[in-house]
């Protein structure tokens, strides 16, 4: 059985947004009890991560880490048509994930207690991001 659904997530600019609940709703709607759930983001300046969800400081620290390794306005970047955050957003996307695969069991995602699925917006301005969730199994 295959069930596919698209999500549109509005971001408020750079930062992480928990989409675990929305993904779990798609799994529930699919009727699949056991299988795999694939989450895919249709952008090259926003990405997906699985991250610890207990302490928000973890995500703040990830943001700090990315700022350090791919700083906005770095003179090495020439792809800056849309601003100093343009090329760093592409680099951050390549360093993280465009697609995640999660096991489904008992009609639910099998994320660990402290794992959350996050959309990571890398552009400084708000965007609406498209995500496709595909649930396969029986």
């Amino acid at each position: 059985m295959v069930h596919q659904q698209q999500l549109r997530i509005s971001t408020r600019g750079r930062g992480t947004f928990d989409i675990s609940r929305q993904v779990d709703e798609v799994i529930h709607d699919s009727g699949v009890k056991q299988g795999i759930c694939q989450v895919f983001i249709h952008h090259t300046s926003a990405s997906l991560i699985l991250c610890e969800n207990a302490d928000p400081t973890v995500r703040t620290d990830l943001e700090t880490f990315m700022k350090k390794i791919a700083p906005d306005g770095d003179s090495m970047f020439r792809h800056i048509d849309e601003g100093p955050d343009d090329m760093p957003a592409h680099v951050r996307t390549v360093l993280t994930q465009s697609s995640l695969s999660i096991p489904v069991d008992n009609g639910k995602d099998t994320l660990g207690t402290w794992q959350g699925i996050y959309l990571w917006e890398h552009r400084t301005h708000p965007h609406t991001r498209k995500i496709t969730v595909t649930v396969m199994g029986e």
């Binding site: 090259t44 970047f77 792809h79 592409h90 996307t93 465009s98």
Partner: peptide
């Protein structure tokens, strides 16, 4: 790699990074 296809520079700069 899933990358941006709008600007050739993106691909080259990802490699450079």
């Amino acid at each position: 790699l899933i990358g941006d296809t709008a600007d050739e520079a993106t691909k080259n700069e990802t490699a450079a990074f």
